[in-house]
Design a binder for these strands. Structure first.
Lengths: 240, 240
DNA sequence: CCGAAACTTTGATCTGCATCAACTCGCGGT
DNA sequence: ACCGCGAGTTGATGCAGATCAAAGTTTCGG
């Protein structure tokens, strides 16, 4: 059914959407061809470089985004500057909080990224008139909820070493399709960001990384590039 | 519009539902009268006493629940026994994970509670044929997601004292409508459960509670009964 | 190619919370 | 009323991870 739908709509698809990575993602995959055309016409692509903010915490934003490329981090900061990353989003995820205008968190590009910017009013209208899209957003919300709760367990009950292993596992799993047993990837986060995700300091992150390296679970090249010879071994560190 | 809908459907409402606390809650408030009748007929009430499990982690469950009375905690446990509470649900919340049969967490009554048990297959069918219900569930899912992320900040970045204050604030806010400035409530959780929610030990929980008591932020009567003379003062402890 | 800034690692020390260990309180049973 | 047990508190000590400090590595502009 989804296949039939997309086949049909491909006829009138906007050029930008035709070859789009997210064409069959959460949002666009749930739209009828006429809606896709309207949305596509009013939704510019934007490239954002690493570190720049997409949505500010506490601000009202008039748009949603869809990640086409790159990684986006969701952060919460306290008045005194303490910071916690509460989610990582990868292409082709949807970013935004339907039904609430003021954002309770900030969204920031962790790597250079490309996003598709949806006008809020337009997409809100489409949500309310498209059950398929609601269902799709419900699906993503429930998956993010599962992920958030899994991370609560990590934050509350795992040791520093387990935390770092959990993060590496999370990224290895979401980044690139792995080949055979050995997995390779570039960390989309700096040590400081990893610390903010795991609720620790950069020093402890660094120490635990070298611990994992010395015990042979991972290899590290140029700080950011990680090689996991055996994913099972990494999973064992997490005692999931 | 919601009002009109409920007026109409009250005519054919099942007896049990007529005076139900959750009649206009997440699930039942989004159903048509014929659906409510069908669901009501097949959904027995059940009383569960404090500590008994409603859904087991890792098990397939053939039902969802709706909390009529009491508090339900959502837990995750690791193979070695470490435990983390990842959510608290109050009446009239919906409990369950649509679209996924095997539960990744357990649900357990924290206090004596009363629930309404929905057959899974029936409710799944209603979800798929009722956009209003999908929308309602999306709303709850997004709210729970906000709450989970707020709690991630608490787990990752707040001190022990701030954590305890955060929990007291959470419960004070969700339990009873407060009178004027001073708020009073019974803790639905034991010290051990509080520890599992905050990622600490019972000893530290206890110490921080007496710290808050000595500093005058709260008063404690019979361990479980808490009096907050000034909610603003409590909020200040959280440095939210 | 050089130099400065930003990021990361490593080492020394400190501390907040965990752990271990009594002890107290409240409650239900006999 | 007394006992016994689970829940909570309080105290002494230990340790994982924070903090403070410094050196090494990478990046990038000139």
């Amino acid at each position: 059914m989804d296949v039939a739908r997309s086949k049909v709509s491909d006829a009138g698809t906007p050029v930008a959407c035709a070859s789009c990575q997210a064409r069959h993602g959460i949002v666009c995959g749930a739209l009828w061809s006429s809606q896709l055309r309207e949305l596509g016409r009013q939704s510019p692509r934007r490239t954002v470089d690493a570190g720049s903010e997409i949505i500010a915490q506490g601000a009202e934003s008039s748009f949603y985004s869809n990640i086409m490329r790159g990684v986006v981090k969701l952060c919460k900061v306290m008045p005194d500057g303490r910071q916690q990353i509460v989610g990582l989003q990868f292409a082709p995820d949807f970013v935004g909080r339907p039904f609430v205008r003021e954002s309770t968190l900030s969204a920031e590009a962790a790597t250079d990224a490309e996003i598709c910017v949806f006008p809020r009013d337009l997409l809100d209208r489409m949500i309310s008139e498209t059950p398929e899209l609601q269902r799709s957003l419900l699906d993503q919300a429930l998956k993010e909820l599962d992920a958030a709760r899994e991370w609560m367990l990590t934050l509350g009950r795992r040791t520093a070493e387990e935390k770092v292993a959990s993060l590496l596992h999370l990224i290895a799993t979401h980044a690139e399709p792995q080949t055979a047993t050995t997995t390779t990837f570039d960390l989309p986060l700096s040590r400081a960001e990893i610390a903010d995700f795991l609720g620790m300091t950069i020093e402890t992150v660094s120490r635990q990384m070298t611990r994992l390296r010395k015990s042979g679970v991972i290899r590290i090249e140029k700080f950011r590039h990680i090689i996991v010879p055996d994913m099972d071994e990494l999973e064992r560190m997490i005692s999931a």
